[in-house]
Design a protein around this nucleic acid. Structure first.
Length: 699
DNA sequence: TCTGGAGTC
């Protein structure tokens, strides 16, 4: 028996997926077509532009932008808003007299690909009339660029140099419904700028659900007379295909197993078409991939006519493996992509006809009491479920199998909580202060974060010396900290490193800590990888270990071959080199002396403490650790070089991840006396020699 | 003591 016995039972409610349009005109699909310039193609591009749903609304959009300070555009998937609206504005003269039309994106990859597309459509070379600006990559010309795509984080940076954003006539915030941290910061700041610059136009592109909230936020009309509104709304229909939704008849006890069963059932019962399954993390993805591979081998032994190609997809996967999901499979092969949330919005895979949705996602969560940011598996929102479903209808009609009952779907929250309300706010407040927002508690947040998170962040910034007693940014320390594209703790550590005499080493350590997964562990070579990684490990902990890895990488001429032999992430290390250069430039700007500890580890460790003293823990007789601040139980993360070694008495760490327990990541052994010496305002030495936090405990 | 989600300045 080739096909497995399946116990999964689905049913399909009568109604169709909400918000999915009936339109199905494949001839004018514009995504991903390679462009070769000749007059005929130019003509056909013009025709294609006119076929996009947004084209019908061109004059209306221009009228609204003319009449209102802010326009909310509800643009459904595939309507063409991102590529077309900036061009309409350009054609209507909004980029005359040296002004720029700016379009922000939450993600780098989106900013680049959309800029490419628009440059193609205009027959222009990227970086001239149409350009983009993201960290480490400025492909724009200050004199020639009229349409500029940029990440929303980059826009916030630009405000530091130009608080009124004078060069922009229009700013379009794309994908605003995603409510990323920087989109929300940009939104609050733009509202403030609009009060001073009546000529600045803001376009907010959002999904249906949030349009009203954005409208209320941006509408400055307080008269109650709708004729005096300063904000307008327009809806543009999308172009996607209907997707049939199926729910399980009863709740699923194990969605990993259920995913495997559902894939096999689709393969057995359904027509051709690729499958996309959503899971929460790397471990689950790899498990499903290996279970499916077993089944696929069994199938091919029994000579099933169609083969399965099973591909994992998550951000930690090496780049070359990620690219495999975009390769088109031959007609004899069914492609199964097993992905994390990366496939929900960030990437589009052609040919997907079936989606399997487990109803969960891993999200950032923040606890202001313990100051711990963690990753937690959370039920998705209805908006997220609809987004996942839509992935099956990008090219043709599809089917979505939800591994939950319709009743459970109804219980899901409508939207995901904005990141602003579940993040550590220390970096946000530092930047707002640097942008001249003195009273951050009264800042116009689209969704205000919890007050306790604010207070906790202000306390930390004060302890780091970035804010003074009155909550004002200190000069120069606080102002310089704000200029670093890093968390305030890292910024403090870097700015202090010259005084400790180890700026060369600290800038390397800070750069390495920005890269995830420097150590590569292939599932089938765990032992070999561990053996190679141990060669870099030092007893002091992860920071000095990473310093060793970086220096060895440079010593071996940044060789990719060498990285492969030692199970190191080559692309990640190259990125560390780039990050290091950027940080070095900033340190030069602030005249941080270039010096080296010349092999003395203690000065490096002390410098780390000067930034990370708030993240200190001591060993507990149970063998685990307790934070000094809140007496919270912590464990060393299994990825740390200190894991399984003799535990040091005192440690500092960069971050905590919460899975089955609270785990410290990037851990380094320190002396307790350093904590008192370097953070006397934070810790005091008790009579019997133990350390205590000065801060009164909030219970 | 047994494991990191997606992004970004």
């Amino acid at each position: 028996m080739a096909a497995p016995h399946s116990t999964m039972k689905f049913w399909k409610p009568g109604a169709e997926a909400p918000g999915i349009s009936e339109e199905r005109d494949l001839s004018s699909e514009t995504t991903g077509s390679p462009f070769v310039f000749n007059p005929n193609t130019a003509l056909s591009i013009e025709k294609q532009r006119q076929k996009l749903p947004v084209f019908k609304h061109r004059n209306n959009i221009l009228y609204l932008v003319e009449s209102f300070q802010t326009v909310i555009i509800v643009g459904e998937t595939g309507c063409g808003k991102t590529t077309q609206i900036p061009q309409y504005l350009l054609e209507a003269g909004w980029a005359a007299e040296g002004k720029v039309v700016g379009v922000t994106q939450p993600r780098r990859v989106a900013a680049i690909s959309v800029a490419n597309r628009v440059a193609e459509e205009r027959g222009a070379l990227l970086g001239h009339e149409v350009g983009y600006t993201i960290r480490f990559d400025d492909c724009s010309d200050p004199h020639a660029t009229r349409i500029k795509f940029l990440t929303d984080g980059m826009l916030v940076r630009e405000m530091m140099a130009d608080p009124l954003l004078k060069k922009y006539s229009v700013l379009m915030l794309d994908e605003a419904h995603e409510r990323t941290l920087y989109t929300d910061i940009a939104i609050g700041l733009l509202k403030k700028i609009q009060k001073k610059r009546r000529d600045l136009r803001v376009i907010v592109a959002s999904a249906t659900l949030d349009a009203k909230k954005f409208h209320e936020f941006f509408n400055l009309n307080e008269t109650g007379d709708p004729n005096k509104d300063t904000c307008g709304i327009l809806t543009v229909e999308g172009r996607t295909f209907p997707v049939d939704i199926f729910y399980t008849v009863s709740p699923v006890p194990d969605y990993v197993k259920a995913t495997v069963e559902t894939v096999m059932k689709i393969h057995e019962m359904e027509d051709d078409g690729d499958v996309l399954a959503f899971l929460t993390g790397q471990e689950e993805v790899e498990k499903v991939v290996s279970l499916l591979q077993e089944q696929a081998r069994a199938l091919s032994r029994y000579g099933m006519k169609k083969h399965l190609r099973i591909l994992p997809m998550y951000s930690g996967l090496p780049y070359a493996d990620q690219m495999k999901v975009f390769e088109r499979a031959p007609s004899t092969v069914r492609k199964i992509v097993v992905a994390t949330n990366i496939a929900e919005t960030s990437i589009t895979i052609n040919g997907i006809m079936f989606v399997i949705d487990c109803a969960f996602v891993k999200l950032r969560a923040y606890n202001p009491r313990t100051a711990i940011e963690s990753l937690v598996v959370t039920p998705i929102s209805k908006a997220s479920a609809s987004q996942r479903t839509g992935r099956a209808g990008r090219n043709r009609p599809g089917k979505c199998f939800r591994l939950y009952t319709e009743e459970d779907y109804e219980k899901l929250p409508a939207a995901t909580v904005p990141e602003m309300q579940r993040s550590n706010l220390a970096p946000v407040i530092l930047q707002l202060k640097a942008l001249g927002i003195d009273n951050v508690l009264r800042f116009s947040f689209l969704s205000p974060p919890p007050a306790q998170t604010m207070v906790q962040a202000l306390e930390l910034l004060y302890a780091l010396g970035g804010l003074d007693h009155y909550g004002r940014l200190t000069d120069p320390l606080g102002m310089r900290m704000a200029e670093f594209p890093l968390s305030p703790m890292f910024a403090k550590m870097l700015l202090e490193s010259g005084n400790f005499g180890c700026s060369k080493e600290i800038v390397t350590i800070a750069s390495m800590m920005q890269i995830q997964n420097i150590f590569v562990v292939p599932p089938n070579q765990k032992k070999d990888a561990a053996r190679e990684h141990r060669k870099f490990a030092v007893a002091e902990g992860d920071h000095l270990t990473m310093l060793n890895v970086y220096e060895a990488f440079i010593k071996h001429q940044k060789s990719s071959q060498w990285c492969q032999e030692h199970f190191l992430n080559y692309k990640g290390l190259l990125r560390a080199v780039t990050v290091r250069e950027q940080l070095r430039r900033l340190m030069n700007k602030f005249k941080v002396p270039r010096n080296s500890s010349e092999g003395d580890p203690d000065v490096i460790l002390k410098c780390i403490v000067s930034g990370f003293f708030a993240n200190a823990a001591r060993i507990h007789h149970s063998g685990s650790y307790r934070t000094l601040r809140d007496d919270l139980e912590l464990h060393i993360h299994p990825s740390s070089v200190l894991y399984g070694e003799k535990p040091p008495k005192w440690v500092v760490f960069n971050e905590v991840v919460q899975t089955s327990k609270y785990y410290m990541r990037d851990v380094t052994a320190v002396e307790s006396s350093w904590l008192v010496e370097l953070a006397p305002h934070f810790y005091k030495q008790a009579k019997h020699g133990s350390l205590a936090s000065k801060r009164s405990r909030v219970l």
